[in-house]
Amino acid sequence: MDILINFILGSLSAIGFSIITNAPRRAAGIIGLTGGLSWTTFYILKNYSHMHLLIANFCGAVVISALAYYFSRKFHLPENIISIPCLVNLVPGGNAYRTMLYMVQGKYIASLNQGIQTFLIASFLAIGLFATPYMLTLIKQGISLRKRKIRS
């Protein structure tokens, strides 16, 4: 049940951000599906399998990039139209806010703690975002190499 609520909220917030950035109307359904699925992946990995937070973020970003890769080729959309609104769900807004809050309250050690965590989450999101295209190019290159070897 709570997974369903998570899915709906994730899709709603992705579609909301796509409205703000004026994405094309025909992409709204795709963006909702991708945003909901990526957020649900992150949520399940974080709460049910007790994985490390960074790995959960990484997997969410991998889901975004894989779905964006597939849908952009199927529906002839630019890839970043799909990935921009979906990434907003995973952005570590809470950690960034707490960095600022502790800095204002004078707890500099706690602030530094949260800041480093924000940076780590952001970099793992970045790694996840380009993991799928990289893997796919590796696989494609491998297949073409093998074909060439067979032919020669």
């Binding site: 909220l9 909301g16 907003v88």
Partner: peptide, 15 residues
């Protein structure tokens, strides 16, 4: 757009 911004504000991370 404003309603879209409202939906973004209901961030699922706070659920």
């Amino acid at each position: 757009k404003a309603i879209g911004a409202g939906f973004v504000s209901m961030a699922p991370m706070l659920l």
